[in-house]
Design a binder for these strands. Structure first.
Lengths: 288, 288
DNA sequence: CCGGCTCTGAAACAAATAGTTCAGAGTTGG
DNA sequence: CCAACTCTGAACTATTTGTTTCAGAGCCGG
């Protein structure tokens, strides 16, 4: 019933096997289950028996043929290596596993895992340093879906350091912004699928002007990558008609935290100044 | 040089890959290395590409052919499973556990877990039904930090159904919007700490006018909750000077997916109409 | 708008794998 | 010693897998 069914099967069947079959069985159990994952020919060779023997034995074990046996081995191995992570409890404890809350979360966690696994931390640190460099002006832009993320990043960076601009996505507006872009400045572009032409054009122009382009895109990678000095791919799969921007936001926040760490002295001063301005304008409730 | 050579190979080669190849690469990395252990045909199917693409890519990676690639995977897997199994995995595999990428992600995952654990799925479904109800107008508002989230939710809901408005946060602008609010309509308020007075006032007025107020807030709960028919608390802790809105976004996206499911027929029509409009205005690149 | 370029998958092809048959080797009981 | 039996692998066939070819589709620079 558990993941080791086939191994058990082999052990229990052993007494009823013939000489050549037992030899094969021993080979299989010896370094289980790797030896079973190659072709039937190699397994037969390794065990010193003929291929018909292999077929006969797996059929005796109840499989329809060698491929079926092999598939069983693969499935078990998969269950084994993904182990405690795979058979996962529901996220929303009160809801069944099939509830959208759980399915969606499951999917997003997968996105996070895969995205993080692919990110090169050195690259990440590099970009954080780039964004922290007060000598460079910063420009942030996004498309239809990603505009809100661009705004989110912009808002944080703006507090952290001076010289940050949000570039409008509509192509008749951003040439104005581009006037300020100069050699060594940085353009952060968000572009996920349904890649937008304006993003591509802007990145192209910016890189020609000597800006460092940082691209944040999805797993299929926007064509902007061609003009980018640094590209980060975030997985955006979701059980929905839409893509999930959660990982992109996670990435942004982490980036903000990293930049902040590098400029803490300056940032601290800016933040307390901001507090004073808030006090002056009474935007927030008096108490927390 | 270690057991993960092929994985590294895939990651490093990714930038030089074509679209279909990148798709394949992502599939391979997705549940590495199991997906590579079956036949080339099944791998191609799983990745949604053709078998020639698989062959081309593995050859590009330096293998003589698919069998060679597969053998490499098997060898690595063998080395891996015989090695130590249990060590706690970092999220960003290449970075030390103390790297900000891992710390931040760890923290966010914790937020997700805690938030989901306390969400009442029945309440969630209730709100989804409320937002899906075409007879009610929908208003969405957010504060300084949460404005982008409000915009994000607004953008999606706007595609899904008619009668959705984004209410400006500045208190001198929203009274205008409030003119349209009537009995039975719904106001979605985002308000996290540094709770804002305008949000509180708006919620108060709205609930007096007979609107259902849905509040999305943090774990300490905004005072808006007093006027809300439904409140969802999202945990927003992060190793940063800022709070993390990742969970809030996850919640929004899940909500969007849930609403979408309930109005799918109507939404489908709206979405294809939107597609036509995009085509007419040529915002996007021709191909995916 | 158009030729040259790259990328992609359908289809043809080649190679291996998996399954089957069958003759002979080994074993057993008389 | 010998039939009758089982077991085994060589050789064959069928099937699936892996590779190559090629024409069409999209992108790019002019």
């Amino acid at each position: 019933m558990t993941s080791q069914t086939t191994r058990e099967l082999l052990k229990r069947a052993e007494p009823d096997l013939t000489r050549a079959e037992r030899q094969l069985c021993a080979t299989l159990l010896h370094n289980y289950p790797m030896s079973g994952l190659g072709s039937i020919t190699r397994l037969a060779e390794k065990a010193g028996v003929s291929t018909p023997t292999v077929v006969r034995m797996v059929q005796k074990l109840g499989f329809s043929g060698f491929p079926a046996f092999q598939a069983a081995l693969r499935d078990e191995l998969e269950a084994q290596i993904s182990g405690p992570i795979a058979k996962h409890e529901s996220w929303a404890g009160q809801a069944p596993e099939e509830h959208l809350l759980n399915r969606f979360t499951e999917s997003v966690i997968g996105n996070i895992r895969q995205t993080l696994a692919q990110i090169d931390p050195a690259r990440f640190d590099e970009v954080a340093a780039l964004l922290a460099d007060g000598g460079r002006r910063l420009f942030v832009t996004g498309g239809r879906i990603t505009r809100t993320l661009a705004e989110y990043l912009f808002m944080h960076l703006q507090v952290i350091r001076p010289g940050v601009s949000l570039v409008p996505a509509t192509s008749n507006a951003w040439p104005h912004a581009m006037l300020d872009m100069g050699e060594g400045d940085v353009l952060v572009v968000f572009d996920v699928r349904r890649y937008e032409n304006t993003a591509l054009k802007m990145a192209k122009l910016a890189s020609k002007r000597g800006l460092k382009v940082v691209l944040i895109t999805d797993q299929w990678q926007s064509p902007v990558a061609k003009h980018a000095a640094c590209t980060f791919n975030c997985r955006i799969e979701a059980p929905s008609a839409w893509d999930s921007m959660v990982v992109v936001m996670l990435f942004c926040e982490t980036l903000v935290a990293a930049v902040e760490n590098r400029t803490w002295e300056r940032t601290k001063a800016r933040m307390s100044e901001l507090e004073e301005l808030f006090d002056a304008t009474r935007i927030f409730r008096k108490f927390v």
